[in-house]
């Protein structure tokens, strides 16, 4: 066998290995989804979505947990998006030549890797105890906002970096100030990337359980929050609570609630992919 044939063979082997690696991931996901759908799909109904939690598994629903999750999502976005985008813009457009900007950059990247339970402890001390917010929607949203802030900053920076230099230079040449250039040219041009980052960060926040448990999100809340200082439950906490009960029927409820949570995160990811593709086509 000459070297060319050997190389071809190696190429073919690598292709098969790569294919198997891809299929393994897909297979595991398929097994997981199949088990989940088989257990939980029959339990999903309008009644399940609109019922209060209950000690009777057949009467219990996810109404309060679902609304809690929606509240957290909205509040987290309101808190984290302006901060994260502003920080990203600053680091990319204004602060990039400073030496401490490099230090900041390393720290932000590191923060993105801190385990979420640590953010929970921070939230417990700062928001729940020190600021006396209690185990409220606002405290949870603030904690999750901190958690996704590094992701948002990194996403914003990368989106801004992708904006062609010529666009900025043209704007500046026409007499626009730096701020006008950012507001009217850079941000609109990078909106697709930033929105994608925001949505991916939010879909992560929605699925987080550990920080919520640490700040003391409660096991049983039979009402939906009506303002930011109300106590609440959230889907991941409700799922955790149901799974830790001995009765098998609560396991079925948990599977159904996981399906709802997956629909939310898959939906968010789908919107992110759609936005990314749309904006990519529009850019020159």
């Amino acid at each position: 066998m000459n070297s060319m044939a050997r190389n071809r063979l190696a190429d073919r082997i690598f292709r098969v290995v790569g294919l198997l690696a891809t299929l393994l991931g897909l297979l595991l996901l398929a097994i997981f989804l199949w088990g989940l759908l088989r257990t939980g799909l029959g339990r999903l109904s309008g009644q399940f979505l609109s019922s209060l939690p209950s000690r009777f598994p057949e009467r219990a629903g996810i109404y309060t947990a679902l609304l809690g999750t929606v509240w957290i999502m909205v509040l987290t976005a309101l808190l984290a998006v302006p901060l994260g985008v502003a920080a990203g813009v600053y680091l990319e457009e204004y602060g990039r030549k400073r030496r401490w900007a490099a230090l900041l950059e390393i720290n932000i990247t590191n923060l993105a890797g801190v385990p979420s339970v640590i953010y929970g402890l921070l939230g417990l001390e700062v928001f729940v105890r020190f600021l006396r917010l209690g185990s409220s929607v606002l405290a949870a949203a603030s904690t999750l906002a901190l958690l996704i802030l590094p992701i948002l900053i990194v996403a914003t920076r990368e989106a801004i970096r992708a904006v062609p230099r010529s666009l900025r230079e043209a704007s500046l040449a026409l007499g626009a100030t730096r701020w006008q250039t950012i507001w009217y040219q850079v941000l609109p041009a990078s909106a697709g990337g930033i929105l994608t980052g925001i949505i991916l960060a939010l879909s992560r926040a929605v699925g987080e359980t550990a920080p919520l448990l640490v700040i003391g999100v409660l096991a049983y809340v039979p009402f939906a929050p009506s303002q930011p200082l109300d106590e609440f439950s959230a889907l991941p906490v409700q799922i955790f609570n149901w799974i830790s009960r001995p009765q098998h029927e609560f396991g079925v409820n948990a599977a159904a609630a996981i399906i709802v949570l997956l629909v939310i995160t898959f939906g968010l990811n789908g919107v992110a992919i759609y936005l990314r593709n749309r904006w990519r086509q529009q850019l020159p």
Partner: peptide, 27 residues
């Protein structure tokens, strides 16, 4: 370009909404 106006109008609106939400602290 239609994308121009999105952040310009969107951001202040978001901030207003945040204020409105945290303002109605009425336990």
């Amino acid at each position: 370009m239609s994308v121009h106006t999105l952040p310009a109008r969107g951001l202040p609106l978001l901030l207003l909404l945040a204020l409105a939400l945290t303002g109605c602290v009425d336990a």
